[in-house]
């Protein structure tokens, strides 16, 4: 039975497959290493490893960068390129797929940066994030804003 972790950051509700979630930590110290890519807010230390904390406000149209390091939860996720962390409010929960409705993102209009599908649970829509895509895009600078694409949306 597939399960999702459901989280919220700012106005973004997002979902991650439980299989990708390595652990959920609370109140980890965030360190602002110099010269981090623009979409990495800080690094966390977990088990003697550095973990980039991604700034999810890049996939929204909100300026919440200063909020990223203040969130109650940090969700550590396995990506193909190493562990990354996402900020989350302390309202996260884990639900099985059958308790909600899954929908594919099919049209260009619906397509959102780093979102592969939507999961609706209790009438709230959660973006299922493509972590491998986001990890590489947000850390290697490919996300760079373009005036003609309305912010971070490079892939249309």
């Amino acid at each position: 039975m597939k399960r999702y972790g459901l989280f919220r950051f700012g106005t973004l509700n997002y979902a991650l497959s439980l299989l990708q979630i390595q652990k959920i930590k609370q109140g980890l110290e965030a360190y602002p290493l110099p010269r981090l890519p623009g979409a990495v807010a800080a690094v966390l230390v977990d088990d003697d490893q550095l973990v980039p904390l991604l700034d999810l406000s890049w996939i929204q149209k909100e300026d919440l960068r200063h909020e990223v390091t203040k969130q109650g939860y940090q969700v550590l996720i396995d990506s193909e390129y190493g562990t990354v962390a996402l900020p989350a409010e302390v309202t996260g929960r884990i639900v099985s797929e059958q308790k909600g409705t899954l929908s594919e993102v099919v049209t260009a209009k619906e397509k959102e940066f780093g979102t592969v599908a939507k999961f609706v649970y209790q009438r709230i829509e959660y973006n299922i994030l493509d972590i491998n895509f986001l990890a590489i895009e947000l850390t290697q600078g490919f996300w760079n804003s373009r005036s003609d694409t309305g912010g971070a949306r490079r892939h249309q």
Binding site: L33, P34, P37, V40, D48, L50, Y81, T83, A135, T139
Partner: peptide
């Protein structure tokens, strides 16, 4: 402590 693969490019030179 290893610099994560994803951050190596940004650290280069510094």
């Amino acid at each position: 402590c290893e610099i994560p693969f994803l951050l190596k490019t940004s650290a280069t030179g510094f």
